[in-house]
Simulated assay, not measured.
Amino acid sequence: MRGRTRWLARSLFVLMCLICLLTGVSSPVALMLGILLALLLGNPFLQLTQAATGILLKLSVVGLGFGMSIHQAVAASQDGFLLTVISIASTLGLGALLALRMGINRHAGQLIASGTAICGGSAIAAVAPVIKASHRDMSVALGVVFILNSIALLVFPVVGNWLLMTQEQFGLWAAIAIHDTSSVVGASVSYGEEALAIATTVKLGRALWIIPLSLLLAVVSGGSLRRISIPWFIGLFIVAMLINSFVPAVQGISADIVEWSKRGLVLTLFLIGSTMTRDLLTSVGLRPMLYGFSLWMVIALVSLGLILSNF
């Protein structure tokens, strides 16, 4: 039976990957397919999935750059800059206070707050070696952020439509209040092209704050400056926008590149969902989960209020 289950899981995994590449499969559906597969049968290619997810996400994000102009990106970055600075500073400050109040492990609290403030798993992966966090702390932080990301991807478009948010408002809100780039893009792609452009640009600009945050934490915690990582794919995203803006020959195929990038993103979300194993869910713990959820709710609600008030 165990052999049959493994064969069935492998067959369904490959089939679902192919289905996710078809036009019409949405990001939330792909995520839920992955989660169901992981919980019911397990992921038969877990290590390969974890390695492929990051690469596919980065390639998909770079490909989306071929659908945007540099002028559009500059305007979106200017609109979201002040809100980004305020949200990052307030999230990190509130995170430090809440961690002390709730008795959260210092490193785990720093990782969860960093992931909430900037860009989810990417920030956690960048900050962890700088502050010399343990594997356990990193696993807990990634688990918290992963679960909240999944909820955000499903809930944010519903809330946006219920509140009749404009494309610009939703794009800003998604970029500020959703942790990972994958879920930011996944939520905004279903809301509209303008929301997608704004959310992607603001989120990638936000991701650059990994560098100053890592420097700050290295100084405060006595960590290693040599372990600071730079999100190189953001540079390639900017290059893609420049090519699309100033090289007319590329504009004829840019729509195809963007469409395949969106398909790649959908597949990425399926792969992310397929890593939500029972072990991951049970390893998080109630207190870190409440800490991450409380911090996320504050930033989501406050940023929503500021955006709706045309701050």
Rank of each mutant, 00 (worst) to 15 (best):
V219W: 15
Q50G: 12
L64I: 14
T275M: 02
G143I: 01
V14E: 01
I299F: 11
L154C: 07
Q167E: 12
L271I: 00
S69W: 07
A240W: 01
H107F: 06
A125N: 08
P212M: 05
L286S: 08
K262R: 15
L242Y: 03
L31C: 11
V239W: 04
L64F: 13
I272N: 06
A152M: 09
L269K: 11
D79E: 14
V266M: 06
L204H: 11
T84G: 13
A255K: 13
S303Y: 01
I147C: 10
A218K: 02
I299C: 08
V25C: 09
C17E: 09
L164R: 10
V258K: 12
C20G: 11
T201K: 04
V62C: 10
R6H: 08
G273Y: 05
V144F: 07
F66E: 03
I88W: 06
S77R: 00
T53C: 09
P248C: 12
A152E: 01
S261F: 09
G109F: 04
F156N: 01
A108C: 15
A126M: 01
N161Y: 00
A99I: 11
A174C: 14
L142N: 10
L290Y: 05
C17Q: 10
L281Q: 03
I272A: 09
V302I: 15
G273W: 04
F45E: 10
R278P: 01
L36H: 00
S183N: 12
V220C: 06
S190E: 14
L295A: 05
L111H: 05
A199M: 11
M138H: 09
T200W: 03
V25Y: 05
C20I: 06
F237G: 08
L48D: 04
L98D: 10
A89G: 14
L83E: 01
S190D: 08
I104M: 12
I147N: 02
D79F: 10
S283M: 10
G305P: 05
F270Q: 12
L31Y: 08
V29P: 00
L56P: 03
L164S: 12
F311N: 08
A38P: 03
Q169C: 00
L8A: 14
A174K: 05
S229E: 09
I210V: 13
F237E: 10
V130T: 05
E259L: 14
L267K: 08
P28V: 07
D180E: 07
G273K: 07
S26Y: 06
L142I: 15
E168G: 06
A125F: 02
F311P: 03
S122P: 06
T116D: 10
I151N: 00
G186C: 08
T84S: 13
V284A: 06
L172M: 15
R287N: 04
P44N: 05
P157T: 03
L225F: 15
L22Y: 11
G143R: 06
A199S: 15
L21Y: 07
L225D: 05
V298L: 11
A152K: 00
D256I: 13
A240S: 12
L97V: 14
L196M: 13
V29A: 14
R278C: 05
G24E: 12
L57I: 15
V202K: 02
L21R: 06
F246P: 04
W173R: 07
L216P: 00
